[in-house]
Design a protein around this nucleic acid. Structure first.
Lengths: 203, 203, 203, 203
DNA sequence: AATGAATGAGATTTCATTCAT
DNA sequence: CATGAATGAAATCTCATTCAT
């Protein structure tokens, strides 16, 4: 008796056990990334994602029991990537100039073009549960706060909090400016603006 | 995304002739705004929009032959609103302080909460044709450029172009910061940052 | 964005407005009756039911937004039929012999062969919500109680209650005995047994 | 009801060789009993049954190559149980009063609550092949006939045949009356009714 | 012109069964 | 043997759009 759509309120991805399975999951995730990035969450279909990965639809559902679970897994993967980048910035925070530090921060979101577009799409999709969306946002903000604290330990918690919000939004703008004409100059100006403000803060 | 039976490649909104019709169109647009803002473009259904406006579904299709045409009309309406605001800024550009000017610009997107959320949703929706999305974006950029030129006529066309891109993205960030904790302080910092940069440019 | 299976917890059948619609609903209900009776609730598919009625699947869902709603409508229709029969018995309860009265009661379920098989199938189906099932059962019991009270007003409420339970189960057995070899003699015996007991009670 | 990949028209349960296997089969059967009783044949899934028995799905298919075969095995087991009870009644048929005899017969189906609910579910399921269903029914009828013959050897074969049909249906009613309000009085009345009829027959 | 019932392609999800490991 | 990941046919339900009334 098919029909009961996933009754579990929060279904999560199942981990593969065999080595072939792990490879297959990799393919499925990549297929999902490009499909979501291209079509958006709602317009992308599970059937198309499976087809893109040359996998039968049943396999897709073996690992991701729900379209939502698939989105969640993707966001988690991207979250891990961002955290790693931010951790790296923490490590070198005191060994670089302010300009370099600004650059590192502002470029956090600029790697992995497709994954980022996918993540941004999912973050905007009203159909994706707010939980996962909030998780990624918070993770990005706290990671940025960590980097700022590593660079400017003299700032209070509140100041760090607010600065992190500012910087995160500056990061996002960097990405969006790529679609405009002459993105190089636009980003250079943006960089200057943020560096100026950061310099004023940190002192 | 069910079957699109419409084969017309580009359907646009039809203008109503009588005053009763104009009132009805108004209601339909408003219903569409809230529905799109709440559910997103894909999840919102034409039936629900008509119901929200207490209008029969046939009426909705009378004026907006396509879901896409409806989105387009909404974006056009919002575009007009933004242009008006930017025009007003042009007029007073030379009579205000730099801080006030910055404030005016950064707050351009902060009015009409629901309409803005609707517009941003539609701008992200991959299902809405890129044309209308590009139109609104360009309109916002050129309007901003006009305001900047009114304030700083000494800048070259290129410089204005780039500055407009920067400012537009700064405007967007103002909106996004509203969802974070302590948006007041975040926005104040942001304002300071942009004012600093604007001051450096304009001279 | 299809996918959200009927989120309304209890969807009910929608009434048709046009005359063609009423005819169509009739056809759909009849198709559903035979299909459920033949295949059972779970094995019967909405697609097959629509096809049997030569109706597009969309039309089926127009009137019965859920497979469950369809079952409910069927049970309600059968309920109405049974109530009518029991009311008729009430009217003639005092004008017939005990044997005739027994006969009338025991034969209540023996008309409308297919509808009855459909109803019994639905009553057993674990997938049909208990509510509708209980409704029909109670309706049958209270209708029978009414008939018994009309015949034997001297009995207490409790006695009527219990007698109704007994008689209802006797009715059901009448139906089941139809599948055995020599159903005529079996039913005659059954009739004698119940009549004997009824005679002993009523006095 | 998803695709039945099994092309074997009639698959039956395989007997286990080792004692550990016999234990496992026992667990699987018990898990199947409760699952079928709770969810019905169609809604119960092989995966869930295996999980309930804490057995891998492969093991389940080792012993019962088909969902149908599993149902068949369950019905056979229940058949054996009923036959044993009826045999016991045969043995004591001449040593008890008519009231006791009636009681014994009417209570045949009242033991093993879950197994019985499972069996009744399977008997109603249109998806279970008619063969096994008929087998159990016939077995119950012939067993009952045996008991009646042991008690009343003077009756002709035809009379026994018909009486068995009547008694079997009386048994079933006893079970169904358990769900109504005041089942004790209902059953007492039922008992009186059947005893009265049996007395009239046997003489 | 106005209405809203009718349509059907297509989306998500399930699960009996197999077979590689 | 034992296991449980893999498969894909098939089921339920949605909704943009049309067109008869």
């Amino acid at each position: 008796m098919p029909s009961q759509k996933s009754n579990a309120t929060s279904a999560t991805a199942r981990a593969p056990k065999r080595s072939r399975g792990r490879r297959r999951v990799e393919d499925l995730l990549n297929a999902a990334v490009t499909t979501f990035a291209d079509k958006g969450f709602d317009a992308a279909t599970m059937t198309e994602i499976a087809a893109t990965a040359s996998a039968p639809i049943g396999s897709l559902y073996q690992f991701f029991p729900t379209k939502t679970a698939l989105a969640q897994a993707l966001l988690a993967r991207y979250d891990a990537h961002l955290s790693a980048r931010l951790d790296a910035i923490c490590d070198s925070a005191t060994e670089v100039t302010l300009g370099e530090f600004t650059s590192l921060l502002l470029n956090v979101l600029m790697s992995l073009e497709v994954e980022r577009r996918c993540a941004m799409t999912l973050l905007e999709a009203h159909t994706v549960p707010p939980d996962c969306r909030k998780t990624l946002r918070r993770s990005l903000r706290t990671g940025t706060a960590r980097a700022l604290r590593a660079r400017a330990p003299e700032l209070s918690d509140d100041e760090i909090e607010v600065a992190a919000v500012v910087v995160v939004n500056a990061m996002k703008a960097m990405v969006h400016m790529g679609e405009e004409a002459d993105p190089v100059r636009a980003r250079a100006n943006w960089h200057a603006m943020v560096e100026g403000w950061l310099g004023a803060q940190c002192h």
